[in-house]
Each structure stands twice: as C-alpha cells, then as structure tokens.
Amino acid sequence: MTHTITITDTEETFSCRETQHLLAGMMQLGKKGIPVGCRGGGCGVCKIHILCGTYETKKMSRVRITEQEENAGTLLACRVFPKSDIQLQVLGHLNDAVNTTKA
C-alpha cells in the first residue's frame, strides 16, 4: 500500500510504500544533497519530525535519537515506515537539502 507524504516546509509531496522507509521515498524527489547516510538508524543525518500520520519504526541509535525525541515524533527517516498519509518537517542536514536545493 502506498501513502502520500507531505513535507510541510515546502508543500512538496512524495509517495512511499508501507514496505519502504521514508528516506527511500524522499530520495525519489531527486533533490541533490538529500543526506543519504547509513540507512540503518546509526548515523543520524536524515532527521525528521512527524506532525501527523501513523507509522512503524525500526530501532534507531540512542546516540542519535533520544527516547523523548522518539516519543515526540522526532525520528530518522530511514527507520520510519508509513501506515497512513504523513505530514512531516525535515530537520538538520536534511532541512538544508530539502529547503535550499531546487528539485
């Protein structure tokens, strides 16, 4: 099943399958500089904040995402699998790439 993911900062959307992590979906936007790091929840470059929507996660390194952050919806895009349409903000390195680079 495929869901629509909206980056609220730029109003851009991309589609993402339930079996695909959000970073993989976001990479389809084709923007230069989207920080694709380890894709295993270890390096912390693909930080996002989920505003609404349901999702499942895989374990993320606690060095990168604290328990409080995780509970508040601040997550690593490579470890989040959508279960509904999602609205999110991008943070840190990812924010620089999404908000300053033209698609």
Binding site: G37, C38, R39, G40, G41, G42, C43, S61
Partner: peptide
C-alpha cells in the same frame, strides 16, 4: 557499505 545498524 553499511551494516544493518549503520556501522560502515
């Protein structure tokens, strides 16, 4: 490449 926990 990376292992499944993000160790290169």
């Amino acid at each position: 490449y990376f292992d499944p926990s993000g160790n290169r």
